[in-house]
């Protein structure tokens, strides 16, 4: 298994290089180093000398991926790309264009993202399983039919509506929770309620529907029939057998998204003013701070690949018949 993991990790390297190169090309087609300098130096009374000097200080005065002015290997190494991306592989994100240490910012902003994402995930799974179980229990009745219809309705509503309506009702009309904001420590609790509730409600539609099909698939299997034949009550069959077996696909589905929880949610974070990694990424784009964008893309890709590996491993743990190949 270790050999397998090592191989997968090695396989990740060309992918990460590709990701990096793509980000570089995309970003620098959009923004010339002059643009980056200008957005850092401000708008008024900026001279070309100031721009040149900023570029020189921040290492943006070289070609992007290929340097024709120097000889040999330097052609590839004496470039912005090489200089700024190689260090990423050691998880050294360097400093943002505005001079901040990116690793530190990430380590700080990771927590708010997690604090929102983890409860959302856990509560979401719990709620979805409960609803899906109910619907599965009453399968082929009017509860099943309307339950599914309700799910479809819920997932046909744009997430923006949930947020706007939630803020309007719970905060503005009912004064139950702060409308936005964040704090550290226990004080954070009251800020968490609204985004978590909204995210969970948003997820009910798709989640419940998916879990329902999983349950129904399990219910159709032979062992359930055997259990029933033994004279077990329907409720017990569902809880003892179906739920237990259905947890396998549910959990493997969850494992994939686990690493990406770090990245936070762009929309939720900016609507609720939560200083997480999602809003960090948006800020990076808006301020055209390339160093941040590059780091976040890299981090996102690493986490994604990590998620894939985790999934593979979890499959084999759950089902020993699957072999590493």
């Amino acid at each position: 298994m270790i050999a397998y993991i090592v191989r997968r990790l090695l396989y990740a390297i060309p992918i990460l290089i590709g990701v990096n190169l793509l980000t570089f090309v995309l970003f620098f087609v959009v923004n010339t180093p002059d643009d980056i300098a200008r957005s850092q130096l401000g708008d008024r009374r900026v001279t070309q000398e100031a721009i040149d000097s900023w570029k020189a200080v921040n290492g943006y005065d070289r070609p992007i991926v290929f340097n024709t002015k120097v000889a040999g290997v330097e052609k590839l190494t004496n470039t912005i790309f090489f200089d700024k991306s190689v260090r990423l592989f050691a998880f050294d994100f360097g400093r943002s264009d505005s001079g901040r240490d990116i690793s530190y910012d990430i380590s700080q902003r990771m927590w708010p993202s997690l604090v929102i994402a983890v409860p959302t995930l856990l509560v979401g799974i719990l709620v979805n399983i409960t609803f899906a179980m109910l619907i599965a229990f009453f399968r082929a009745t009017y509860i099943d039919f309307w339950g599914v219809v309700l799910c479809v309705i819920l997932l046909s509503i744009s997430s923006l509506f949930y947020i706007i309506a939630g803020q309007y009702l719970l905060s503005k009309l009912f004064h139950l929770v702060p409308i936005s904001g964040y704090d550290t420590g226990l004080n954070a609790l009251k800020f968490l309620i609204l985004p978590v509730v909204i995210s969970v409600i948003h997820g009910i539609g798709s989640g419940t529907r998916w879990y329902r099909t999983i349950f129904l698939e399990e219910i159709g299997k032979d062992y359930v029939r055997t259990a029933r034949a033994k004279g077990l009550g329907e409720g017990i069959v569902l809880f003892r057998h179906v739920l237990k077996n259905a947890m396998i696909p549910i959990l493997t589905g969850v494992v994939v998204v686990l690493p990406l929880l770090f990245m936070g949610s762009l929309i939720t974070e900016s609507f609720f003013g939560i200083p997480g990694l999602g809003s960090y990424t948006i800020e990076g784009i808006q301020r055209q701070d390339f160093a941040i964008v590059r780091s976040m893309v890299f981090l996102g890709s690493v986490l994604y690949i990590f998620g894939l590996i985790l999934t593979d491993i979890s499959y084999t743990l759950v089902d020993p018949r699957v072999r590493f190949s």
């Binding site: 409308i179 609507f271 003013g273």
Partner: peptide, 15 residues
């Protein structure tokens, strides 16, 4: 406090 969106900011002012 950091307030990026106008709706929350406005409502907090009203509150």
């Amino acid at each position: 406090s950091l307030e990026k969106e106008s709706i929350p900011r406005w409502n907090k002012f009203l509150q």
